[in-house]
Simulated assay, not measured.
Amino acid sequence: MHAASRTAEVAEVLTELLDERFGALGELERLVETTAAWCERLDTDEGRALASRLRTVADHVAFLGDRIADAEADLQNMPAVLPATAPPLAPARGRAQSAHGARARAAVAASPHRPPPSATASSPRRPAVPPGSGPARAR
């Protein structure tokens, strides 16, 4: 992100993050949902309670994806190129510089399992519904 000078480059990073098949957010949501389903298979009150909490986490991940998709769409209204007078991007703060930042960068890095981004591809958008305010998730 630090090397990006064009709005399209920033939008592309967000698009990759949101990609339903290969994006980090979709993968995280699937992982949490699968873990919830596994916990239910324990057939205990504790397992069902944890599964319920995990499904809430998955709802929050989906909501975060919706907010990021909104930001991606908002980039369309921004100038296409940084002005020559733009200050450099400040280094990431706190944990983003740690392994979490490295994982985030790796999540959107090129992969032999991920097809190259296409200039015309766009990710499907979910309706913006905050967790807990929409219909209940199928369990």
Rank of each mutant, 00 (worst) to 15 (best):
Q97C: 11
A109S: 14
T85L: 08
R103T: 01
P115H: 09
G47K: 04
E72H: 15
W38T: 11
R30F: 01
P130W: 12
L54N: 04
V13P: 00
E27S: 12
L42I: 04
H100G: 11
A99N: 13
R125T: 12
Q76D: 15
A110T: 15
A69S: 09
A109L: 01
S133Q: 13
P88A: 05
S122Y: 08
V57M: 05
P117S: 11
V81R: 14
V61E: 03
E12L: 12
A24E: 01
P83I: 00
A37D: 13
F22R: 14
E16P: 08
S133V: 14
L17P: 00
S122N: 11
L75I: 01
A36C: 02
V81P: 01
P88R: 14
G94L: 08
R114H: 06
E16K: 14
G65W: 02
R21L: 08
P115M: 07
A36E: 03
P79S: 01
G65P: 04
A102D: 12
V13W: 10
A102K: 12
G23Y: 09
G132T: 03
R53C: 05
V57P: 00
P116V: 11
R21Y: 05
R125W: 08
L14Q: 04
T34P: 03
R55K: 06
S133R: 10
E16M: 13
A24C: 08
E72V: 07
L14W: 08
P127C: 01
L42K: 10
L25D: 00
I68M: 00
V57I: 11
P88C: 00
V10D: 01
A84L: 12
L64K: 05
D43A: 15
L31A: 15
G101W: 06
E33Y: 02
F22T: 12
A62T: 11
L18S: 00
T44D: 09
P124N: 03
P131K: 02
R55S: 02
A11Q: 15
G65C: 05
V129I: 15
D19A: 04
E40S: 14
A128D: 09
A119K: 14
R21N: 11
E12F: 02
L28W: 06
A90R: 14
N77R: 05
L50C: 04
D59W: 04
P88K: 03
S122G: 09
E12I: 02
D70R: 01
P83T: 03
V57R: 01
T85S: 15
P112L: 08
R126L: 07
R55G: 00
H100D: 13
L31W: 01
R30M: 03
E20Q: 07
T35M: 08
P117L: 07
T85V: 09
A90G: 02
L75S: 05
P127G: 06
D66G: 10
L18N: 07
T56L: 09
A106P: 06
T34V: 01
G65M: 06
A80P: 09
S52T: 15
A102Y: 02
A96S: 05
G94D: 08
P91W: 05
E33C: 10
T44W: 04
D66N: 12
H60N: 03
Q97L: 13
D66F: 04
A96W: 15
M78E: 13
F63Q: 02
